[in-house]
Design a protein around this nucleic acid. Sequence first.
RNA 1: GGGCAGUUAGCUCAGUUGGCUAGAGCGUCUCGUUGACGUCGAGAAGGUCACUGGUUCGAAUCCAGUACUGCCCACCA
Length: 884
Amino acid sequence: MKFEKTYNASKFENDIYKKWEKSGAFKPSNKKGAKPFTIMMPPPNATGTLHLGHAVMLALEDIMVRFHRMKGDSTLWLPGTDHASIATQNKVEKVIAVEGLTRHDMGREKFLKRVGQFVKGSQNTIRNQVRKMGSSCDWSRERYTFEPHLSTAVSEVFVRMYNDGLIYRGHRIVNWCPRCESTLADDEVTYKEERTQFYYLKYGPFVIGTVRPETKFLDKVIIVHPDDERYKESIGKKVMVPWIDGDVEATIIGDKAADMDFGTGAMTITPAHDFIDFDLAKRHGLEIIQIIDEKGNLNHHAGEFAGQNARAIRKKLVAKMTEKGLVDHIEENYVHNIALCYRCDTPIEPLVSQQWFINVDKKFKGVGEKTVGKSLKDRSIEVVRKKKVEIVPDRFEKTYFNWMENLHDWCISRQIWFGHRIPVWYCKGASTKCEPIVSAKTPLKCMNCGSKKLEQDPDTLDTWFSSGLWTFSTLGWPKNTPDLKKFHPTSVLETGYDILFFWVARMILMTQYALNEVPFKTVYLHGLVRTREGKKMSKSNPETCIDPLDMISKYGADALRLSMVIGGTPGNDIRLYEEKIAASRNFVNKIWNAARFAVMQIEEEKKQSKGTKNRKTKLSLTDKWILTLTQELIKSVTKDLENYKFSDAGSKIYDFTWNSFCAWYLEFSKGEQKNIAVLTEVLETILKLIHPFVPYVTEAIWKNLGHKDFVMLQKWPVVDKKKLFITQARELQIVVDAICAIRTLRQENAIDIVKKIPLTLVSSHSKILEEKRDAIERLGRISELTIANKMSEEIEAMKPTLRTFCAGVEVILPVSDLIDVSSQRAKNIEEIANVEKYIATLSGKLSNKNYVERAPADIISQDKDRLEEAKTRIEKLKSQSRYL
RNA sequence: GGGCAGUUAGCUCAGUUGGCUAGAGCGUCUCGUUGACGUCGAGAAGGUCACUGGUUCGAAUCCAGUACUGCCCACCA
């Protein structure tokens, strides 16, 4: 027997994956006329292991990819990893810290070597995990953002942007992480609520408020609102104020930035260490002096505190100021947000430094354009507004626009070691007037003075600069490769909504520049995976964190995939817990057993019909019913998948398989001569339709059915109108309903479910009931079944009996006098009341002039039918009550 | 402060353009093992669709407001 009693996923998965991969089935087909379908896998950071977020991503993308491949598209799913400069560097720093080393101890070169080794190991882990999930991606095209070719693309874009004036170098205030010793982009800063002291300091005649007295050493400008009656007169004046290290001359300036209602309405400013103050200083042409350095320490301006960590000396400084009588009062428990580095949670020190920026507002001539067109910002907004890029769900468009519209110039230089070096060299020759050399290739000498003493800019690029090129750098750009021509723009970008800004927006931006194209036509955003309680799963809390690999070894990859897809809708978070995965595993096992049973039937049938030609070919009522439902399933599942309704598609197949196919079709077939062709067709259609969701078990079954090829390469089922038998399908439904009614009647009256009982059915559909007599007897556990066309006196007189009525069939069950009918009587009374209420509602509706005049005709006739049905039903119920 | 979601059965969620007596899975209870599957089968109980108004013949669905929950953005010295 090829089929074991239960499906053991771990016995099949690795082997199946190897066979798929080896066969080349993951590569896009070269079939003529095949439409391209492309997904670029969002490259996981090369920092370690995959989590459930990646698992969701892989499951959804694999579903799309397998669906399109089966539909005949030339389907490319390109995998890869991201070097993730800051994240990876931090990770390796933690690793070497265990050995008591810092990156400075090792030096740049040695440290980078170590990072390289680490990345290699990490990539292997990731590759293995991606495979474990069953992802059918093309490994022959795997890419890494830091590999030579992709690095070329990075330099190329940089140089082009520089030449177009979109990249510039400037002194600006930036977010600085003193631990990473690097800048951070605005969106790489996170905020956390903090309770702290709020200090009111005496500044001459003013009282100013601050949470950071340690930045105030050099403050000598007071800002007040120009309309503030309290200070209006003093604007423009200078005053001498006693301050931390002696008297300073302070100037009073009027600016609307001062909030009259906050604190005392007066503030001093620290231009070098605060974004707002920096703007203010620029506006008023004030001096900008740095007092905190790159390590977060105070410099010589801080007097006795020089060289010490700025935040650490706060208490001591306040003590000193108190002594000098400079502290007015201190407010405790002041709530404010503290800015933190998103990679290491260190408080940010804003400071002024020289950095590289991308100008997002400058208009430029795009690729293929004759004149100067729009800015990066405007272009990126336009492509989404014009639906060249469609975001699913579309509510995220609003978020996207809001972010784009408020985008400032993007700081792209980082003082991180690991990453793409900025392709700029400075001449260190005799002349000091030489321009920096910006070049994709390492220059040999200075173009101006000919000196060979060149030094490359020590900084590296923001990691999102390179991942922003992901859709095309992976396809060979800047060369115009066949892959680039065929697969770009890509079809769908599937990712979590949490990186809409970090990545998605930047890809749109960069692709607009480099190709004057959109990177993808559709963005599908999935939600975050949460615990059953809705909490975030975090690695730091193993209690809440589920490891995808554990779940795969316990329940199988198919079960994990299914549990993450069913019940999820785009953009909404997914709650995941083990019971859910177990339920999916049960379903996977159900498919397995359905197939196992079908194969048993087929083999038995073959044995019986051996030599003879008595193979059944005529379609039974049941066959026509299941074929009809199958066509309907194909239609709606295909439509759902095309519309990114993965959960709907999955649940429909789930329901069809479990209920229509297993619970009814297979149960019916047990007592009948089988139509092997239909049984096989329906089973194989199920396997094909569900394959994108649960690739492993379907492939394992496919093989056990005797196929030599892969189910993953089968053609996607299409509706065959010749197999739609609407009337017959409806007829069989009557039988199904009747059997349900019989079962309910038995259960409600505690009639032993095993015991065979006599029964009478009265219905105008007696012909159909007659045709399915065997099935009714078997599934209803009936010993003697009487089927009558209409009520006769004899049947009427049968006593004692239990009676029920459903879907045009009256069910009459003779019982002994001893049976307790009180519960049935109560049920009957309740039901009568129920239906009477229903009739009242319906007839009320139908006698409402407004309703009859305004409602659409089909709704009215539907209600009329319902009323008739209800009336029949109540008559039956009332007549039945006489027997109770 | 601005914005976006969500609120439907004990739990997780469906419910398309307004129109079945509001559904599914899990869990619970009862009963059961009939030729695949105990990772199984049959049946039942369980809902004022958060609240208040409005539009409409008709609202879980549309509109306005309220409450609670979650998230994103901005950040006040």
